[in-house]
Computed example of a mutant assay.
Amino acid sequence: MDLYHDAVQLLTQLIEIPSYSKEESSTAELIEEFFTARDIESHKSGNNVWAFASAFDNNKPTIWLNSHHDTVKPNAGYTKDPFHAITEDGKLFGLGSNDAGGPLVCLIAAFTYFHERDLPFNLIMIASAEEEISGKNGIASVIDQLPACELAIVGEPTLMDMAVAEKGLMVIDAKVHGKAGHAAREEGVNAIYAALEDLQRIKSFEFQKVSQFLGKTKVSATVIHAGQQHNVVPDLCEFVLDVRVTDAYSLEEAFEELKGSLSAELTPRSLRLQSSHVPKDHLILQVVEKLGLKTYGSPTLSDQALIPYPSVKIGPGDSARSHSADEYIYLNEIQQGIAGYIQLLETYANLLTQTT
């Protein structure tokens, strides 16, 4: 079984099949075919595909392996065909090669390695859809179809460092009301001026609680709109807030703290994308110590935000290459990713056996 060769071949095929979020049916079929060719039974719901490494045992804990097979659209800066897998100078180029094709095929390779081996835990591989848009038909749609897990290992490009915490995201629509009037006669109450007071507060606003791994929760005003014509005092000013929430808060708690400091009418678009952190007594942290892995708190979103169980994020590739023109992953990063995931799971299995 040549895990590396199979992983590179699968990644090459994935690159050459367009799989924008909500349009991943062909890559879902490819992943199904990969499992079928290796006599691994798989399941599909929407464009999400999953498989069990062996018969499920209710007496064992469960570990999820998860990464996504959707991509963003290529940006205008590409000089290479984003759907042509090209190998140059030890790099494999192509859209989704780094985010998250590389981590995905390495997780699948590790899963294949452990298939039908005797493990002290159930192992499930989940290739999810719509991760790039945190879509409702992605991993969130299959959580209820899967057994609960004690740990989810989420494959994203992290240089094989381990994110043990991840910021959540809350987008808030804000409205400030005034009173319309003729600009020349100094009538009305200008909603723009009223909104300025809130915007000044937002500019200097600091949330009270600070996270050990993720630092401060941050709010930024990112969009603003008011008025329709030059001679009418606007009676409404609308703006959008982007709030990156650490594990020190739930989204609901962060919203209430912010709401108490502003006069605008605030409405969160969603409370789905929660922050996460690994409990301090979780076995994965003993694995981290034993393997000498570097840990950090991630400012970027992944399917971790939608998984309601303890999770970590780790994988080959570099987050800085994600969504960039001429995206690539080093071939030796794929080798290291496969070996790293296998070592991670073997170490977890050994420690789990020692503690039970």
Rank of each mutant, 00 (worst) to 15 (best):
H5W: 15
L169A: 12
I63Q: 05
G90L: 02
A100F: 02
E256M: 03
G260E: 00
L169F: 13
N137L: 14
C149H: 03
N190G: 03
I172P: 12
G260R: 09
G96P: 07
H282S: 11
L236D: 04
I192G: 06
E131M: 04
V142S: 04
S261D: 13
E346F: 06
H84I: 11
M160F: 10
T295P: 12
K73Q: 15
V233E: 00
I31L: 14
K80Y: 05
P279M: 03
S261V: 13
R321P: 05
D281C: 04
S45Y: 15
F35N: 10
F121D: 01
H43N: 11
H277K: 15
P157C: 11
R201Y: 13
A191N: 07
V164T: 08
M170Q: 12
H68S: 05
A129Q: 10
L236K: 08
D57E: 12
P147D: 01
E257L: 04
A110T: 01
I63Y: 06
T217Y: 02
E32L: 14
L123D: 09
D326W: 06
L344E: 04
L107Q: 15
N47S: 13
E197A: 14
Y78P: 05
A195T: 09
T87K: 15
E327T: 10
D70P: 03
F114Y: 02
Y296W: 14
L159N: 15
L95C: 09
V245T: 09
T71M: 10
M1V: 14
L214S: 02
G260F: 04
S21Q: 01
K203V: 00
G178K: 12
A53G: 08
E256Y: 05
I86P: 04
Q200L: 13
I329T: 08
K60F: 06
G135E: 09
K73P: 07
V219Y: 01
I17C: 00
F239E: 09
L196S: 13
E256C: 04
N98H: 05
S324A: 15
L107D: 11
Q335H: 12
I31F: 07
W50N: 00
V240D: 12
D161W: 12
A110Y: 10
L345I: 03
Y341D: 00
N75W: 02
E289L: 05
H43R: 03
E333D: 14
A184Q: 15
N190E: 07
A37F: 07
P157V: 08
P299L: 04
F207K: 10
